[in-house]
């Protein structure tokens, strides 16, 4: 049994014009410690898929299983518990609380889950040991994204979901952040899923899932991923 398995997953919306299928018959399997990229143009259904994986929305058909837990059948309360315990989320725009310091922003996540890591230690791991008490406004974009990553991994989640994590960053900083996420998947043996529309990134992933019009176009396994430093775009 795979660590994460999606089987015949569908997401339909009822609109005035009829039923709109945002996701149609999605199937794939992913393993612990993999670095996975979900690739697709805007409107392809990437965000919908991310919402289903992150327990922010429910599928209308099919089954999602993470580490033997059936996510797709959870009610609202259990989904909240799932997000709390099992999911780490890295946002495109960091989403830090402006009135909390870096370390407090990490505590925001660790205070509510059981197997949390030590916030200051995690921040130090992402290279921010001298910025613990800075407020977001006193940090650069790359530093803010590191806090956001620290907040996601400090929960010690089973799955790290990243929504366009370099979308708001400059080229060089973006690379550093991707390196960090890649390292996390390898050293901590975490499944890291990065959603992006940047085609160039597919060379660094263990697996690439391409989505188009709500369907999976193909799933590519990369037997020898390239280090991010060698990729140009």
């Amino acid at each position: 049994m795979s660590f994460l398995k999606l089987e015949n997953v569908c997401k339909e919306y009822k609109t005035a014009a009829g039923v709109f299928k945002a996701l149609d018959d999605i199937n794939f399997e992913l393993e612990d410690g993999e670095f996975v990229i979900i690739l697709g143009p805007s409107g392809a259904g990437k965000t919908t898929l991310l919402n289903l994986l992150g327990g922010m929305d429910s599928a209308t058909g099919g089954e999602i299983v993470l580490d033997d837990k059936i996510i797709s059948s959870m009610n609202k309360k259990r989904l909240t518990q799932y997000r709390r315990e099992d999911i780490g989320f890295v946002f495109q725009f960091y989403n830090l609380m402006p009135n909390l310091t870096a370390v407090e922003n990490v505590e925001l996540a660790t205070e509510i889950c059981k197997n949390a890591l030590v916030p200051a230690q995690v921040l130090s791991d992402v290279g921010l040991n001298d910025k613990l008490k800075n407020f977001p406004a006193q940090l650069s974009g790359g530093e803010q994204q590191r806090v956001s990553i620290a907040r996601a991994i400090a929960k010690n989640p089973k799955l790290l979901l990243c929504d366009e994590p370099t979308g708001a960053l400059d080229y060089a900083t973006g690379k550093v952040i991707l390196r960090l996420l890649h390292d996390i998947s390898k050293t901590n043996k975490k499944l890291v899923i990065v959603v992006t529309h940047n085609q160039a990134l597919k060379d660094m992933a263990d697996k690439v899932i391409c989505i188009k019009n709500g369907r999976i176009e193909n799933v590519t396994v990369n037997s020898s991923p390239m280090p991010i430093e060698e990729i140009e775009w």
Binding site: G54, M56, K77, T80, Q81, Y82, R83, R84, E85, I87, F89, F91, N95, M97, L108, A109, I112, C113, R151
Partner: peptide, 16 residues
């Protein structure tokens, strides 16, 4: 609004 949404994604319960 954004802070509230973030808390929800982080798995905060309604009362929290």
């Amino acid at each position: 609004n954004r802070e509230i949404a973030t808390l929800m994604v982080l798995g905060y319960h309604d009362r929290e």
